[in-house]
Design a protein around this nucleic acid. Structure first.
Lengths: 341, 341
DNA sequence: CGGGGGATTTACAACGTTAGATACATCGAT
DNA sequence: ATCGATGTATCTAACGTTGTAAATCCCCCG
């Protein structure tokens, strides 16, 4: 049996509360008493029972991060940053995988872990505004990535329209005329895809290029296999793109696989641009040009916002934070003249 | 304030215990009563307070998975499998990142989260046997990956010696004579690296190849950058390998980047073999030959072992489970004749 | 119509902790 | 010596849940 305050108290010859005071750093404990208690704690290897502490205090020291899938490198990288940032607040992070399924996202939002977590960082993909509006759970929540509906939650994201426009403009400025896009979603829920597509279209318009529906490839999910399939379809359709803007890096890497496997040169024949700046893209050959969101900034800001909610209660208007992004041009658009990573 | 059993009870006009019985699926509750209680639960959106429940039951329903870094795709993939498997047991997974640092691994093992977690799945990299032997925490633990010391813990791993030998033999059978290895560790702790190196040496001996220290590259860590650096060093040293066995896929992908960037053809000039079968390797060009451990099997077995420890108490000898692995030959050793992924 | 006995419900205590109130020292100043 | 004032330690009552044991209900048989 694990030792309790009571056991420590008996060993140190003091009351339970005195031990509790020592454990919690209460000021008025005689140095001698404190020393005796600390010795007893060490002797017994005492650890506070968090369940009991939480029951008393109403706090668990645990926050949840809900993401579609840790297999997707972007979310794995985001998760490591969140864990690091949470650690600085003394929080432990628990990870929920929603598989980008609406039903699972609803479960997360509905407060399935109420009482276990103090707060929730949520990166929704499939959720709709009304799902959020119906949320009855009172656990503070910060949304990552896309804004959903008008529900009053703090939100950290990047300006997807601007970022996608810049990416597409980069391709246009390289002289590409038949710029395709991979990653459009048919589902009503693909908010991020919609915004990036809008930026893509804006850039085409600015560059005086005509929009061609045959150059926009839809996908089921955002894995490499989807990108590979979509690229194959584009090539087979005869749309003959000379550049492709992919809505994320894994799609782009899948597309790259298809291109190279078919002997299409990148970037000479087709330039390729991704989104997210995951580590794989830095080491692919050719290395992948991409739009790099400030993942660390996003994670830190989100944790910070949550911390504020937790201390200030529900008070205050929801905050809207736009993290920075920057374009990273690598070999998949510039060719081998670029410096190696 | 969140509703409690008491609130539900009052609304339904029954006692607290009856509500508890309904919540816990106790058999002998009149259908009519059950319905009334369930209605009240729905009305109030009641959620059991896990802290209180855990305090009472001594269980938290949370297990921890401690891995070096989610950024490393192998661990991200393993984590998703663990989360899925744990979910079937009704457990929530909390992830600890140790950064492969001995100090952080010791903290994890010492029971920093005692009382918060019911069990621990631990994938140690830097820990020594004596660290484990000193462990005072009583939380059940299952070791993943490498066996450490003689401490009496359940362990799930693969036969690294055999796997590495098969990988190296595969290269030898392709007619390669100067087979290098990337991923040896100087640190005393790199048990996995040591075993794989042993398998590599066995295979060389069996193939009648002489062992050449200049063909064994040491690395600091197991990221792509380390593989890229190590490969560059190998090429620059004049060791002139015609094949490379990398101790994991990220090292191999880093090495591939260096090779292709320098115009070395893979596999014509240098065949490349990895370890772990991460998704990236399936979509690189050329796709990466690799040794594929049964990650799902490892995760499921580990969770299963933990479940057994939790129900059976500490009883029973520690179990030693060897998961299966299989060789996946792709383009980086076979060339483009292989079927696309 | 009383009693037996299973079905159903309830009362109570306990899990380990901490906040707040209270008691007990100690000590300098009257 | 006595009184506050202050520092230090203890006591008590929760936090929300569930296991145990006991109470009550209800149906059916004799």
């Amino acid at each position: 049996m694990q030792p309790r305050l009571k056991d420590v108290a008996e060993r140190a010859g003091v009351s339970i509360k005195t031990v509790s005071n020592v454990v919690n750093g209460y000021e008025f404990v005689k140095p001698e008493t404190r020393a005796r208690v600390e010795q007893a704690i060490a002797d017994l290897n005492y650890r506070p029972n968090l369940s009991a502490r939480n029951l008393r205090s109403g706090r668990s020291g645990v926050i949840a991060l809900a993401v579609p899938d840790l297999d997707i490198p972007y979310f794995a990288e985001l998760a490591t940053h969140v864990i690091t940032a949470a650690d600085r607040h003394g929080w432990t992070v628990l990870i929920d995988q929603t598989q980008a399924e609406r039903s699972r996202e609803r479960v997360v939002v509905s407060g399935i872990r109420a009482h276990l977590i103090d707060g929730l960082l949520f990166s929704p993909l499939a959720l709709t505004g009304s799902d959020l509006a119906q949320r009855a759970d009172v656990t503070p929540m910060v949304l990552l990535g896309e804004r959903v509906g008008r529900a009053p939650y703090d939100h950290v994201g990047i300006d997807n329209v601007v970022a996608a426009r810049q990416a597409t403009t980069h391709l246009a400025e390289l002289g590409r005329r038949r710029i395709a896009a991979i990653g459009a979603r048919r589902a009503a829920s693909g908010a991020t895809a919609r915004l990036r597509l809008r930026g893509y279209r804006q850039a085409l318009a600015e560059a005086g290029l005509e929009e061609n529906p045959a150059l926009v490839a839809h996908v089921q999910a955002y894995h490499r296999a989807d990108g590979a399939r979509a690229m194959a379809a584009l090539l087979d359709s005869g749309a003959a793109p000379d550049a492709v803007f992919c809505m994320n890096d894994t799609l782009a890497l899948g597309a790259m696989r298809t291109l190279l496997a078919r002997g299409v040169r990148v970037p000479e024949d087709v330039a390729l641009f991704g989104f997210d700046d995951i580590e794989d893209g830095r080491f692919s050959t050719p290395s992948l040009s991409t739009m790099s969101p400030d993942k660390q900034g996003i994670a830190e800001t989100a944790v910070e916002l949550l911390a504020r909610r937790l201390s200030a209660g529900a008070a205050g208007r929801p905050e809207e934070v736009c993290a920075s992004h920057r374009l990273v041009a690598r070999e998949s658009t510039l060719g081998r003249t670029a410096t190696a990573p």
